[in-house]
């Protein structure tokens, strides 16, 4: 539902989204040297695959966005990771669009990164229970922010989209619930088995070879 196709949004909204995404990408890439690219690629691939999991929530089923979890694990690198995922979806699956890459990347990646940055300090030495609460909160806030941003993108494009923007907003309910629950359980699991994984220890750790 977060994938707005080509041909729906107005030009100013497309340009605005493009500018924001370009700036976020430039910032994220500046913090990321080429030595770390394979690590981000591995995690970007993981999140792409994980978003294909369908989760039953009440009578509906949803596909996860995982932007909150991405933000918690790879921080700003989530922006290029989401961008690459969206290019693949647009070109090879036909979901989303090419001119809307900017708007879609902004709507999906930015909330995850920003909420994760705000809440990540709570994850230092967290027990599984607290990790679950933090994970669920970040996931819920990220999905809610994405929903609001998608609705705003539509409303700002054309005033007559308002009603469908509201329906879109409501339709994010099940996703919000599913995403919060699953991210919560995933964070509890990670806090139990690998507490130092949050906010990119894989990137800071540098030298140490993981035991596997």
């Amino acid at each position: 539902m977060a994938h707005i196709p080509d041909g729906v949004l107005s030009v100013p909204v497309l340009v605005g989204g493009g500018v924001v995404t370009a700036a976020a990408l430039a910032y994220a890439l500046k913090k990321l040297d080429e030595d770390r690219l394979p690590r981000v690629a591995v995690l970007a691939a993981l999140f792409f695959v994980a978003s294909l999991i369908s989760v039953a929530v009440g009578p509906t089923s949803v596909h996860l966005l995982l932007s909150g979890l991405m933000g918690l694990i790879i921080g700003w690198s989530a922006v290029p990771a989401v961008f690459v995922g969206l290019v693949l979806q647009a070109v090879f699956f036909g979901f989303g669009g090419v001119t809307t890459l900017g708007v879609n990347t902004m709507n999906i990646a930015l909330p995850g990164v920003l909420w994760a940055m705000l809440f990540a300090p709570l994850l230092a030495n967290a027990n599984p229970r607290r990790a679950a609460m933090v994970g669920a909160t970040v996931a819920a806030l990220s999905v809610a922010s994405t929903a609001v941003m998608v609705a705003l993108s539509l409303t700002l494009s054309d005033a007559s989209y308002t009603l469908s923007a509201r329906i879109v907003l409501l339709s994010y309910g099940p996703l919000l619930v599913g995403e919060a629950i699953l991210t919560g359980f995933a964070c509890a699991f990670l806090a139990r088995v690998s507490p130092d994984i949050f906010l990119a220890p894989a990137m800071r750790r540098g030298g140490k070879l993981a035991a596997s």
Partner: peptide, 18 residues
């Protein structure tokens, strides 16, 4: 499913190191 997700994240981080 949450644990499956966590397991995938963990394995991917390990693979990234390798």
């Amino acid at each position: 499913l949450g644990h499956l997700l966590g397991m995938l994240v963990l394995r991917s981080a390990e693979r990234a190191e390798r």
